[in-house]
């Protein structure tokens, strides 16, 4: 039973925010999160069976409030679609924001590419009142076919999202 538990844990999908790099370029702050993405067999199986996955990388600039939820000053998000082409046997990562497509023979390559890919640019004026930024990368369950939405909601194998990563906004040098 314990073994089964650990097996299940090992097979479950994970997204972790390894680090967030911030660098100023004139009046623009470039935020580059680096992820560790590992999909589960169930997710791989779904992609190989033609299910399109949508992942959303989301960044928020927050202002702390004493006894209430923190105020969200601004937010950005980037949407990625992952799709499998059976004829060519390749996986495609589609960046909906930049309209970029990248093909990969192996799914691991795709995850590796995505882990390094997301970038957010923030204008200096958007950061004036902000205390910290938070970001996360997660599977958009609502974009899945309706038949899969309930299992995704209830199954641990489909828990494909990072925790909310919070970081102090680096001041401009």
């Amino acid at each position: 039973m314990v073994l089964l538990f650990f097996t299940c844990q090992a097979e479950s999908a994970t997204i972790q925010v390894k680090r967030v790099m911030q660098s100023w370029h004139q009046n623009v702050l470039l935020v580059e999160p680096k992820y560790n993405i590992e999909s589960s067999e169930v997710i791989d199986d779904a992609i190989n069976n033609g299910i399109e996955l949508t992942l959303i990388a989301k960044l928020q600039i927050n202002k702390k409030r004493g006894f209430w939820f923190d105020e969200v000053l601004s937010q950005q998000h980037q949407t990625y679609q992952i799709r499998y082409f059976s004829l060519s046997g390749q996986y495609q990562l589609h960046d909906l924001k930049n309209k970029e497509r990248h093909s990969f023979v192996l799914l691991e390559d795709l995850w590796g590419h995505l882990a390094q890919k997301t970038k957010f640019t923030l204008q200096q004026e958007d950061l004036v009142n902000g205390d910290y930024l938070s970001l996360r990368l997660k599977l958009d369950a609502g974009a899945l076919p309706s038949a899969l939405q309930l299992p995704v909601l209830l199954s641990a194998d489909w828990t494909f999202k990072s925790d909310q990563f919070e970081s102090i906004i680096e001041t401009k040098p």
Binding site: G50, S86, S146
Partner: peptide, 22 residues
């Protein structure tokens, strides 16, 4: 066309059980 149909079929087949449950 073939790929699109194959994808559609595969997608539906994959969701078959979930679809019935839904």
């Amino acid at each position: 066309n073939i790929e699109t149909q194959f994808h559609q079929y595969n997608k539906q087949a994959y969701q078959r059980e979930q679809l019935e449950k839904t």
